[in-house]
Design a protein around this nucleic acid. Sequence first.
DNA 1: GCTTGAACCTGTAGTTGCTACAGACCTTAG
DNA 2: CTAAGGTCTGTAGCAACTACAGGTTCAAGC
Lengths: 141, 141
Amino acid sequence: MAITKPREAMKRGELGRRSGCNIETIRYYERIGLLPEPDRTDSGHRLYSPEDQAQLGFVMRGRELGFSVAEIRALLSLMNSSEFTCGEVLDMASSHLASIKAKIRDLRKLEKSLTRLVRNCEGGEAKDCPVIDALAGDRPV
Amino acid sequence: MAITKPREAMKRGELGRRSGCNIETIRYYERIGLLPEPDRTDSGHRLYSPEDQAQLGFVMRGRELGFSVAEIRALLSLMNSSEFTCGEVLDMASSHLASIKAKIRDLRKLEKSLTRLVRNCEGGEAKDCPVIDALAGDRPV
DNA sequence: GCTTGAACCTGTAGTTGCTACAGACCTTAG
DNA sequence: CTAAGGTCTGTAGCAACTACAGGTTCAAGC
């Protein structure tokens, strides 16, 4: 009957394998405060707990959703403050959503311009190129 | 009758004002080879010709269309090679267009996920937050 | 001619979000 | 016991700028 049952811990490589996160990135997240400083073995090797793994998952999902590191830091500290409200999170998520929509709009404009240029471009050996002309300012982009 | 009529030249600040480009960025473009090294006054101040201004315009339009610095460098050297073909430019533009379309697709996925999360989020003082739950891995993102 | 302030010069550091390397140390299998 | 691999640290690199410090130089007013 183990009194202080050692929690199942893993080193950085194992955490990387399990989470799918690059091991250098794990260290980076620790450095910038997205992960807590983990326990260490006597010789200094990091030992990650399942909680650490969960937090890394949180961070990775946040990044996949396009949140910036600063936003994730804010979300983490919100979550860790005992009294966080859904409203605060909603604000962050909605404004992030708005910025994604803005990015999509911008990219669609690019897409439109480029499509038009490419459509007018004959390719091949032609000596006059609409794409180059547009870049050179000889016709509207 | 001026034999060597000095071409109308301008300094960096004037070029920045005319083109709308940040003056530090002009120097940066020179350093990375998107702009040629301009003439200098005796005391070392840069003197830009109208051709330099045109090239800066080319670079800026390229950036606005989302081309990377490397791509613009390639486009410039294509244009300066006496025998460039429209086909080569078309290849670059089409593959760039493809990458923009891919970015749009990715962002739309994000938009969809975030919209769903935000829609399920009541906001206010609720103690259970779908956004946080999703990030924590308790429900699908 | 002199002063003052703007513009310009150079080199370098910061941004964001990683990724990768060198050189040392530790661990583990055979 | 040794060899290979994992881990440690610090640091440099990527894109594409942007900004600053500390030093000239220019241009206008008196």
